[in-house]
């Protein structure tokens, strides 16, 4: 097994994280923001797993990544339910238009 240096994993994860951040800022759609957040969580998991390669006895990084996946699943269900609720109430999915509290 050729050892891929850990820095390569970190660079890929950093690129994915930054793209996810840019998506979450750029998209003017609540579900588009969720796509960006999912991408960021995945990028963090790549970091955890890349470091967990060097700890094969007690793979703490992989266990942490497993819990991150669980939290991401719980987050996405609740967020989608809230988005459907917001859509039913305001008839829009653009986050800038849901600004009743600012008026």
């Amino acid at each position: 097994m050729i050892n891929i240096p850990v820095e390569h994993y970190l660079i890929v994860a950093a690129a994915l994280f930054c793209i996810g951040l840019a998506i979450a800022i750029t998209k003017q759609h609540l579900i588009g923001i969720l796509l960006g957040i999912e991408l960021m969580l995945n990028a963090v998991n790549i970091n955890l797993i890349a470091f967990s390669r060097h700890d094969p006895e007690k793979i703490g990084g992989q266990l942490f990544a497993l819990f991150v996946i669980v939290v991401a699943a719980a987050e996405i269900t609740v967020a989608l339910a809230i988005i459907l609720r917001v859509y039913g109430h305001f008839r829009t999915v653009e986050p800038d238009k849901v600004s009743e509290l600012k008026k």
């Binding site: 994993y9 998991n45 967990s52 793979i59 992989q62 497993l66």
Partner: peptide, 16 residues
């Protein structure tokens, strides 16, 4: 990303 998990030796995480 799942393929990257496999390459890092995390087979269960890739399937999950």
């Amino acid at each position: 990303v799942a393929a990257l998990y496999v390459l890092a030796g995390a087979d269960f995480l890739a399937v999950a």
